[in-house]
Design a protein around this nucleic acid. Structure first.
Lengths: 147, 147
DNA sequence: CTTGAAGCTACAGTTGCTGTAGCTCTTATA
DNA sequence: TATAAGAGCTACAGCAACTGTAGCTTCAAG
């Protein structure tokens, strides 16, 4: 029987986070001591480890919920699980691409600043006047995406 | 004199977001018509475009606030502006590195699933049993970092 | 003068937690 | 067995950076 603190230490989770997962139904309600404290079993520890690892891989809690549900129906579900993972991979790749273009632009910005030692800083100019910023805002593109 | 909707269209911002920026003091309080509607000038449009472009580059609203404050003091501030940009670049690079390692792991996971056609899906196993997940949770590492 | 789009305020909700206040419980030691 | 530290409890507020909703008012074209 594990206390919530032990669960937290073993999985690198904060205690409040575990309670939060319980609150949103991602972790089951565990047993309690007479005094009302939570006591967990080995299966709970596995489940929490699963959640944390998936979170580290960038899966949303919704996707994790999906994976946990799928794992309860072992037949016919490998393809669906694969689809969730594929979707996650595509999201990660899109974020990488986006960040890489940001990196290029930031580098360029910083380079221009250094080349222009005495005059006013170019970084602010670049930020102010970037071409595509006062036009062409119909296409949504990646705008809503988290970086 | 520009309406808030025109500002929104020109910069690709939602109307509510502009009002939000005003609320948190990032945009100034504009003039109002007799009926209470906001009317903006060219300087406001520039400032909003600056904010949006910086946001697209991944700068936090706090960093943008810093840049806007610095841009009001043109002397001696280029180095500080450069520092903000350098910090942003480092953050972007760290996020790219993190995402790339996620990508590798996701790919590996998916590959194992495909190689194992009939048996139970390996993805769940991998998520459940990753080596470092039930140990070594003292070092913070990149754990708190946004992906 | 009417009508419909656009604007207004105020507030709730989003994601994934984290922090705080003010308690109570457990457990090791004296 | 008493006590005290540390861990746990609930309930709620707060974070970033918006987004959406309800229910109204104003503006501008025809």
């Amino acid at each position: 029987m594990l206390t919530i603190g032990t669960m937290a230490k073993r999985t690198g989770t904060k205690v409040q986070t575990i309670r939060y997962y319980e609150q949103i139904g991602l972790m089951p309600e565990p047993g309690r001591t007479g005094g009302g404290q939570r006591r967990y079993g080995a299966a709970d520890l596995d489940r929490l480890a699963f959640i944390r690892h998936a979170r580290e891989l960038g899966f949303s809690l919704e996707a994790i919920r999906e994976l946990l549900d799928l794992s309860d129906t072992p037949e016919k579900s490998c393809a669906e699980i694969d689809a969730v993972a594929q979707r996650q991979l595509r999201e990660v790749q899109a974020r990488i691409a986006r960040l890489q273009s940001l990196e290029v632009e930031l580098r360029r910005m910083i380079a221009e600043c250094h080349s222009d030692r005495v005059a006013d800083c170019r970084i602010l100019e670049v930020l102010r006047d970037h071409e595509e910023c006062l036009s062409d805002h119909k296409g949504a593109g990646l705008r809503g995406m988290p970086l």
